[in-house]
Amino acid sequence: MAGEQSSGTFVSVPGESAELKARSAARVVSCEVMATDLPQSVPSAGVDPARRASRARVTLSWPLDNIGPSLPNLVATVAGNLFELRQVAGLRLEALRLPPAFAEAYPGPAFGVGGTRRLAGVEAGPLIGTIIKPSIGFDPAQTADLVDTLCAAGIDFVKDDELQSAGPTCPFEARVDAVMRAVDAHADRTGRKVMVAFNLTGDLDEMRRRHDHVLAAGGTCVMASLNSVGIVGMVELRRHSALPIHAHRNGWGYLSRHPSLGWSFPAWSALWRLAGADHMHVNGLANKFAEEDGSVIAAARSCAEPLVDGAPMTVMPVFSSGQTVWQAAGTYEALGTADLIHCSGGGILAHPDGPAAGVQALRHAWEAAIAGRPLADAAATDPALAGAMTLKA
């Protein structure tokens, strides 16, 4: 692993001197064997499939001079051809420890928790959010009608679904214009502007143009699909953006689902925090996907963990996926903070008494959670909350 990803190759070559190795070779800092006599995690070319495997925790160190403080080249080094090595039947990148040079090269989130709260007008408690549903199929006017309803319902945050970007049925600019007319009309009446994350995922020039359109229309947030735009796309969007960037992790499963292959969320999200994400999706408790609750909470906690000395680069975790009033207490108990966005799609829009009751119920569920009050007790005198308890993923 160390040789392949630094100065070595499959045979000795002229020029790989002791001096060059001392200067440029990666080092194996530690190799702690965790288990032996295990079945291979994935088929490995050139290795007998019947051969048993060991599992170890390995720490590798690369000289910064090999790549400089460059996120694209960091990825090529720590997650490049390592996964293809025939001697490795499974490999998972668990953690990254980066030198201060990376924090000097990349400014990280421009808004984070504090800036998001300021723009959304939510000083305390979670941002109660939702997703445009149906995910795709509405035209701009229909989308704006739903946002108008949600604004009237008291929502804090609305986001496009990741499937909705700029198709012919719902062009990006027309959608932004229609939605912002509804948002601004509500703000004129109430003095409070709902934050809407418009999905501008696209080519670099498209994302810049779309960002500028949102900014000119008075919008306060943009959204990008990380695995679609890539590291360079996120870095360039951060350099250009005057708005918070809502980072969606769709496709995360193919990087993480096998326990012996891929990335841990803290390691993977470190790249995007440095690149400039302000919000990071972390799934949700009792979600509709395959991720276990412990993994979700670990992901959310990692959003506040320092990346390098003196540069915490805290981002706001976004909980979504089958979220209802039932998850508020467990989420707060596990995190001990309400610095988060709690997005409930069906849990708000499918409330039996309508979206306003759905927003009210989720907000009251969080108030009960923070106060340490059981959900059933709070619902006994709260019809909206009682109605929301009939919805489960």
Rank of each mutant, 00 (worst) to 15 (best):
V147S: 00
S264A: 13
D139T: 02
A53I: 04
I245N: 04
A120G: 12
Q323V: 13
L271R: 04
V325M: 06
A378H: 05
R51N: 02
A380T: 08
E94T: 07
P171K: 10
S320Y: 02
G284D: 14
A329L: 09
N73W: 12
P140V: 09
E206N: 01
A304Q: 05
S241I: 03
L200N: 09
I132V: 15
H240A: 05
R238S: 12
S7N: 11
L38C: 11
L274G: 13
P69I: 05
L163V: 09
L335C: 07
P43L: 03
P72R: 06
H364W: 09
G336H: 02
G112S: 01
D177A: 14
A270S: 15
A290V: 12
D145V: 13
V75S: 12
V33Q: 11
S264V: 01
L150M: 07
R238A: 13
W366A: 03
W252P: 01
T130Y: 00
I231F: 10
V176T: 07
S70Q: 10
A144N: 00
V122W: 02
G15F: 08
V47N: 01
C343S: 14
R363G: 03
P355T: 11
A141F: 04
T220S: 10
A124H: 14
A53R: 08
D203G: 15
G219I: 00
G3H: 11
L71E: 06
E305I: 06
A361G: 04
P126E: 07
L307T: 05
V29L: 10
A338Q: 02
L271Y: 11
Y332D: 01
G129S: 04
G219P: 00
C170L: 07
E305Q: 14
T59V: 15
G276Q: 06
L91E: 04
G68Q: 01
R118G: 08
I348Y: 05
M280I: 10
H364R: 15
G191C: 08
A356I: 01
Q327P: 01
A393C: 14
A120I: 09
G167P: 00
V11D: 12
L255F: 15
W62R: 00
P63T: 07
S7A: 13
L385I: 01
H248S: 11
N81H: 13
T337I: 09
V232L: 15
S61H: 08
G284I: 09
A217D: 02
P126Y: 03
A89N: 11
D188H: 07
G330S: 04
E84R: 10
A369P: 00
A18H: 12
S17Q: 13
N250V: 13
Q360P: 00
L98P: 03
L91C: 10
M223T: 02
A290F: 13
F265T: 14
L204E: 15
A141S: 13
G202T: 08
H248Y: 12
A369V: 03
G230V: 12
E367F: 02
P134Y: 06
T324H: 04
L204M: 11
Q142P: 00
R273L: 07
A124V: 11
S7F: 08
N250R: 02
L391A: 05
A76K: 07
